[in-house]
Amino acid sequence: MKLLIIIVCLLASSQLFSSQQVLILATTTSTENSGLLRHIHGDFEKSTDIKIKVIPKGTGASMQLGRDGNADILLVHAPDQEREFILNGYGDKRVEVMHNDFVIIGPSDDPANVKGEKFAAKVLAKIAKEGATFISRGDNSGTHMKEQKLWHLSKMKLISKAKEIITAKGKKEIKFMRPVGGWYRSIGRGMGATIHYATEVQAYTLTDRGTYYAYHHDTKRSKPLVILSEGGSDLFNQYSVIAINPSKHPHVQYSAAKKYVAWITSPRIQKKIALYKKNGKTLFYPDVL
């Protein structure tokens, strides 16, 4: 019995002693799930002796972490929101790191007849007019933000589901824009779960290419969804890093964050990103090379 107590005490104290510098990187779930970061971060940790703690949240949540000073650096993919973030003084500057694209997937029989349509905004318009089922992530992620932007461009009638919250700086509005109609379902889930749901009900959805490629499909249950629209300029998916502004949050590890920015935009790492493949497919294209 006494031995047990001693063991427990030793275990407990083990957590208290570690003076290693740790950089907190908040990023999107799709980035983390792609495995890219796991692939390249070892290099950073070895060359700088700084450990990286990756917190995978949605883009929206990551930005909130940045605003609260709970992260040192962000890697996200929502350019409009990023610019606003920087404008409000929370971030240092946007540094574009890599890109890939979104695709619109749907059932192979394509009830809304969108196949071949180049612009995603037009695709969504067709889906809306046809009233074909569309699944939205509805979770304030980068993908969801892109989706809302596309709806905006589609010129369809949109309503906003808004909530007013009171923050330290006065009232703030959280707004989700969505089209009208029961064919549009907002499920509040991650990308993989969303693809799964859409496959089950044979509906359209917006996804990043990487997650779609990585998705395991269970052919016994339902027919897989196929890519129906790709390559449009409005489906471009830009990833950037933003170091948190030390004047807003003096405690953030600004110099470590700058090191990260320099490292991830270095030719060597950019090449690594380009060469990263999953299931034989390239997921990200470097911006700096």
Binding site: T29, E32, N33, R38, K53, V54, I55, P56, K57, R189, G190, M191, G192, A193, I195, H196, Y215, H216
Partner: peptide, 24 residues
């Protein structure tokens, strides 16, 4: 915990993560 892979990911949080990724 934030579900950080090498720091705070536990059995339960990785279950949820895999569910969200679709790996049921």
């Amino acid at each position: 915990g934030g579900n950080a892979e090498k720091y705070t990911r536990t059995l339960t949080t990785s279950i949820v993560l895999n569910i969200n990724m679709g790996y049921f």
